[in-house]
């Protein structure tokens, strides 16, 4: 009887099963596998910064000595500075626009009942799974059919398409994370919908909004597949990198650039992931 009771109490509280019941010790074989797996994910990318400090034009072992000249060379390149500016422009526009669309959609999805919610969610999520090449050529065709020129604008449109689903998911989980009643309480206490949004919804969603801004920015900043089809004369950073890959002599400075981008993205993403996963770990994880 008491066993049953204690079990019931445990499951009611939804605590984690003690490791004695789960197989293995906390640092069993699975732990080593996990470390191995993380190494598999990270080590290949870490070669970028490693060789960017190597004093040799060839990306090969043995290492020849430490240098920062590739970073200097990188910083001296006009094309790169232009591309960086373009990427920042596009990324900023994309993250703001996508987040606004994401907030609207997430609010609608979490706060209202309406028919065809499932199919509509599916439609907005579609860019998640549709091969990038399809979206790229489809937008390319649209641009030409409308008689428009390829430009940063066309890149930005395609990036909004990619970023909106992310933004919506991040914000949906954030909005589901707090009680719908809070907004109703505000209405009930006499504040209209507009003030309710700014006084209750916005402050409570803020971490999600910041996370969404950062994620959408990094989606745009790193995006290559769509930008490849949709870039005109002005290149974004990934496009610039791609164009430099043809020249072996440029490789080390491309590595330097790659290392910088990688570190930058990591910082950005780590911060936004930390923001949005705090407190609502499982819920938020389900969004991606």
């Amino acid at each position: 009887m008491s066993i049953v009771a204690s079990k019931a109490a445990k499951s009611a509280a939804h605590v984690h099963v003690p490791s004695s019941i789960m197989e293995g010790r906390p640092y069993g074989g699975l732990f080593f596998y996990a470390v191995f797996y993380l190494s598999f994910i990270y080590i290949p990318v870490l070669f970028l910064p490693l060789f960017s400090f190597n004093d040799s034009i060839y990306i090969a072992f043995p290492l020849k000595g430490f240098t920062t000249k590739w970073y200097g060379e990188m910083a001296a390149s006009n094309g790169l500075i232009e591309a960086l500016k373009n990427s920042l422009k596009v990324g900023t526009a994309v993250c703001i626009i996508s987040t606004i669309f994401g907030v609207l959609a997430a609010k609608a999805m979490t706060r209202y009942r309406f028919p065809a919610k499932g199919p509509i969610t599916g439609l907005i999520m579609l860019p998640f799974v549709v091969p990038g090449i399809i979206l790229g050529i489809a937008l390319l065709i649209l641009t030409y059919s409308m008689g428009m020129e390829l430009s940063l604008f066309t890149i930005a449109v395609s990036h909004v398409l990619l970023a909106v689903p992310f933004s919506m998911l991040v914000l949906i989980s954030r909005m589901e994370g707090f009680d719908k009643n809070l907004e109703e309480a505000s209405l009930d206490l006499g504040e209209g919908p507009w003030r309710t949004f700014w006084q209750v919804t916005f402050p409570l969603t803020l971490p999600g909004i910041v996370a969404s801004l950062l994620l959408c920015f990094s989606v745009s900043f790193d995006e290559f597949i769509l930008a490849f089809f949709l870039s005109g004369n002005e290149a974004t950073l990934p496009i610039y990198i791609w164009s430099q890959l043809r020249f072996p002599s440029k490789l080390p400075s491309v590595l330097a650039l790659g290392a910088c981008i990688f570190v930058f993205s990591c910082v950005l993403v780590t911060f936004s992931e930390w923001l949005r996963r705090r407190g609502v770990q499982v819920k938020t994880a389900s969004s991606v």
Binding site: L187, D188, G190
Partner: peptide, 20 residues
């Protein structure tokens, strides 16, 4: 008449205390 114009007020099931 929307909720914010009604002469009623509500105590919610889980109280809906604004956490911020």
């Amino acid at each position: 008449v929307p909720p914010h114009h009604r002469p009623t007020n509500m105590v919610f099931q889980n109280y809906a205390i604004f956490p911020h």
